[in-house]
C-alpha cells in the first residue's frame, strides 16, 4: 500500500510542475488525499472538542464548586436541590453497571446461539431471511423500545413479581432486546469468517456437527464473540431514553430488581434541561457525563484488546 504512494510523490517532486499537474491521476491522487484527510480531521476535531467540553464542565464540579471526587463516586445520596446539596452518584453508577451487565447476560447467549443457527445449522435461510430480520431490530428507535417496555414489560413484571414493575429488571430486559442485534450481527460475521478448513478437518476426524460447534467453532471465535458482547454492553451503558422510561429514576440503590432505580444517563437526561448552565447541579451532571465518557473509553480499549488477541 505504501510503496506506490511514495513513488508517485517522488515523481511529482522531481518532474516539472506543469507536467505533474497535467496528469489527471496525480490531481486525483491529491484531491483524494486532501478530501480523506479533511474527513479524518473533522472527526478528530469533533472527538477532541467533545472530550474537552465534557471534561472542562465535568471537572469544574471538583475544582470550582469544591465537590470531592470521592464524595461523587462513593456518595449514596443525590440531593442537588437540598438545603445542603449532596452529590453522591454511586446509585447511578450502580444502576448503569447492573442494567448493562444484566442486559448483556440475557442477550449474549441468545445472540450467540442465534448466530450459530444462522451460520452453522441453516446457513442459506439464515443469511437470506433471519439476519435481515434481526438487523431490522437495530433500526427501531429507542423511544419505541421504551414505550413497549412501559406498556408491556412493566405491567407483566408487576403482575408476576412483587413491586411496581419498573426497575433494573425492566430496564435490562428492554436493553437486552436493544443490544441483541449488535451481538448477533458481530457473532454471525465472526462465525462466517471462520476458515472452512477448521470445520472440515473436524468433520474428517469423525466429529459430529454439534461436537464441531462447541469444541472447534465456538472456542476459536470466542474473542470475536466477546467483542460483540462488549460492544453491546457499551451501547446498553450509553442508552438513555428507553431505560429512563422503565427504570423509575429514583436516586437510590434499590433493594430489589423490581424497585425504582436510576442510571447515569437517565439522571443526565432528566435534569440537564431544567438546570442552569454553570450551576453546581448542572456541572455535577457533566461530571456524570464524564464518567460515562471514560467508561466508553474503557469499553473501546477492551474491544481493541480482544481484537488483538483474536489476530494472534
Amino acid at each position: 500500500m505504501e510503496q506506490p504512494a511514495v513513488m508517485n510523490k517522488k515523481r511529482v517532486q522531481t518532474g516539472s510542475t506543469t507536467r505533474a499537474f497535467a496528469k489527471p491521476h496525480v490531481i486525483e491522487e491529491w484531491v483524494g488525499k486532501v478530501y480523506t484527510a479533511l474527513c479524518i480531521l473533522v472527526l478528530v476535531i469533533t472527538i477532541g472538542a467533545i472530550v474537552y467540553f465534557v471534561s472542562s464542565r465535568g471537572l469544574a464540579t471538583f475544582f470550582v464548586d469544591g465537590v470531592s471526587l470521592g464524595g461523587l463516586l462513593g456518595g449514596l445520596k443525590w440531593e442537588p436541590e437540598g438545603d445542603i446539596p449532596l452529590y453522591g452518584a454511586l446509585p447511578f453508577i450502580f444502576g448503569s453497571f447492573s442494567t448493562s451487565v444484566l442486559a448483556a447476560l440475557m442477550a449474549a447467549p441468545l445472540g450467540m446461539c442465534a448466530a450459530v443457527f444462522m451460520t452453522q445449522i441453516m446457513p442459506g435461510f439464515g443469511k437470506k431471511v433471519l439476519q435481515p430480520v434481526i438487523e431490522l431490530l437495530a433500526g427501531i428507535p429507542s423511544v419505541v423500545f421504551g414505550f413497549v417496555g412501559l406498556s408491556v414489560v412493566v405491567p407483566v413484571l408487576r403482575a408476576i413479581f412483587p413491586g411496581q414493575g419498573i426497575g433494573i429488571a425492566a430496564g435490562s430486559i428492554v436493553l437486552s432486546l436493544m443490544i441483541l442485534p449488535t451481538i448477533t450481527t458481530i457473532a454471525t460475521d465472526a462465525l462466517a469468517a471462520l476458515p472452512r478448513g477448521l470445520k472440515e478437518g473436524s468433520f474428517a476426524l469423525g466429529a459430529t456437527r454439534w461436537q464441531t460447534i462447541y469444541r472447534i467453532v465456538l472456542p476459536t471465535t470466542l474473542p470475536s464473540l466477546l467483542t460483540g458482547v462488549v460492544l453491546g454492553m457499551s451501547r446498553a451503558f450509553g442508552e438513555a431514553l428507553a431505560v429512563q422510561m422503565v427504570i423509575g429514576n429514583s436516586p437510590h440503590i434499590p433493594h430489589s430488581l423490581f424497585e425504582s432505580a436510576s442510571t447515569l444517563t437517565s439522571a443526565i437526561t432528566l435534569d440537564m434541561g431544567n438546570t442552569v448552565m454553570g450551576s453546581t447541579h448542572n456541572n455535577a451532571l457533566w461530571s456524570l457525563a464524564l464518567i460515562l465518557l471514560s467508561m466508553t473509553f474503557v469499553f473501546v480499549f477492551v474491544v481493541r484488546f480482544l481484537e488483538r488477541r483474536n489476530k494472534r
Binding site: L150, M245, N249, S250, E259, S260
Partner: peptide
Amino acid sequence: KSEDVQGSIQEDSSGTVKKLVSET
C-alpha cells in the same frame, strides 16, 4: 421540599406520569 423517597418513581414527562399513575 419533597424527598426522593426510596422506591419512588421520577418522570419528567407529564404523559408518562399520567400513564404510571393510572397503571400502578
